[in-house]
Amino acid sequence: MYLNTFYTERGNKRNKKRVGRGIGSGLGKTCGKGHKGQKSRSGCKINRSFEGGQTPLNRRLPKFGFISRKQKKFQEIRLNELSKIDGNDINLSILRSFKIINRKIKYVKIINTGNINKFKNIIKLKCTSSVKKILIQLGGNIKE
């Protein structure tokens, strides 16, 4: 096998477009860009969102939505996740040590999802009213 024996199939290779090579080429004089206008000039780069001077769509539509900075530091915890903790006392640092919450989390609320069978003392954490009832029935305390 030699380089001089390689051939492509006929019609497989296209010739490069050669612009500005005379009237007979079909792409002479204006080189297929027409007469005048922004797109006929050299170095023409038009932004995709440009609408010819009309106010663009992204500026015509109203802005909406809001993400609270506090929301990024807040997390809800299910009741059954408390059963993974060995001790009876539960606070932010204990939840971090058992990797139930991220270290960036500063606000936690315990919600009633799942079951728990041991009593737990909750220290400085928010709870729903149904969780408070369940924990008090088991013999736990809630210190907010």
Rank of each mutant, 00 (worst) to 15 (best):
T113V: 15
Q54N: 09
G139H: 03
E51R: 08
R10W: 15
E144C: 05
I94M: 06
F74L: 01
K133T: 07
R69L: 08
S68L: 09
K13M: 10
L92S: 01
R60P: 00
K126T: 01
L92I: 10
G87C: 11
E144Q: 08
K132C: 12
L138W: 07
V131K: 02
F74Y: 14
L82Q: 08
I110Y: 03
N102G: 00
E76Q: 04
N58F: 14
L125P: 01
L61N: 06
G37P: 01
K109R: 08
Q38F: 05
S42P: 07
G22W: 05
K13H: 12
R78P: 00
L95G: 04
R14S: 06
F74P: 00
S97Y: 06
S130G: 01
L125E: 02
G43A: 08
I105L: 03
Q75A: 13
K124G: 03
I122W: 02
S49D: 11
K16L: 14
R21G: 07
N12L: 15
L92G: 00
R18F: 13
G139R: 03
I85L: 13
K133G: 00
K63N: 15
K39V: 09
S68D: 14
N47T: 04
S40H: 10
Y2V: 08
I67Q: 05
S97T: 10
V131S: 09
Q38N: 06
L27F: 14
C127M: 06
E51N: 07
I94T: 15
D89R: 04
K72C: 00
I77F: 04
S40T: 12
G65V: 10
F66E: 05
S129W: 14
I134P: 01
S25N: 09
D89T: 09
K84H: 15
G34A: 10
K45Q: 15
N88R: 05
V131R: 01
I122F: 04
R14D: 11
E76N: 02
Y2Q: 11
T8R: 02
S49N: 13
E76I: 02
F66V: 11
N58V: 12
R14H: 09
R14T: 13
N88S: 12
I116T: 02
Y107G: 00
R59G: 03
Q54C: 07
N58D: 11
I90K: 00
G20S: 02
G24H: 10
G87D: 15
I90T: 02
G43P: 00
F119Y: 10
R69E: 11
F66D: 05
R69M: 07
